[in-house]
């Protein structure tokens, strides 16, 4: 990775994509660590993968579809009690759009 302005731009882009806010101190620290880590994982580039297909899952066994029958769902009250904020028996958040 090139100069520090470019590094900062990249980290800001990644923060935006992952909804993570960093203080300027954290940003600086993580930017230089990420640069090192990206340099490290870059080693995979030296492995010859010409003509090789990617493996996307953890198992080669074809996945089984379960029967399309509904199962007893979790109890609504139990689920709603785990929410940080509720209104009646609904999840509540601040508005999505500005008024």
């Amino acid at each position: 990775m090139a100069d520090s302005a470019e590094k900062e731009k990249l980290i800001e882009h990644l923060c935006k994509l992952s909804a993570i806010r960093l203080s300027s101190e954290e940003k600086q620290k993580l930017a230089s660590e990420l640069e090192r880590i990206i340099g490290y994982v870059q080693r995979i580039q030296s492995i010859n993968t010409e003509g090789v297909n990617p493996t996307r899952g953890g198992t080669e066994t074809p996945l089984e579809l379960r029967e399309d029958k509904p199962k007893e769902p979790l109890n609504r009250e139990d689920v709603i009690t785990t929410a940080p904020d509720t209104f009646c028996d609904l999840f509540r958040t601040p508005p999505i759009l500005e008024e």
Binding site: L14, L17, S18, I20, R21, L22, L34
Partner: peptide, 18 residues
């Protein structure tokens, strides 16, 4: 998401990058 610790943030950012 600020409640995530440093290592978790590091890995989320790396994963987002790749």
């Amino acid at each position: 998401r600020s409640l995530f610790g440093e290592e978790v943030k590091r890995r989320i950012l790396l994963g987002t990058f790749v």
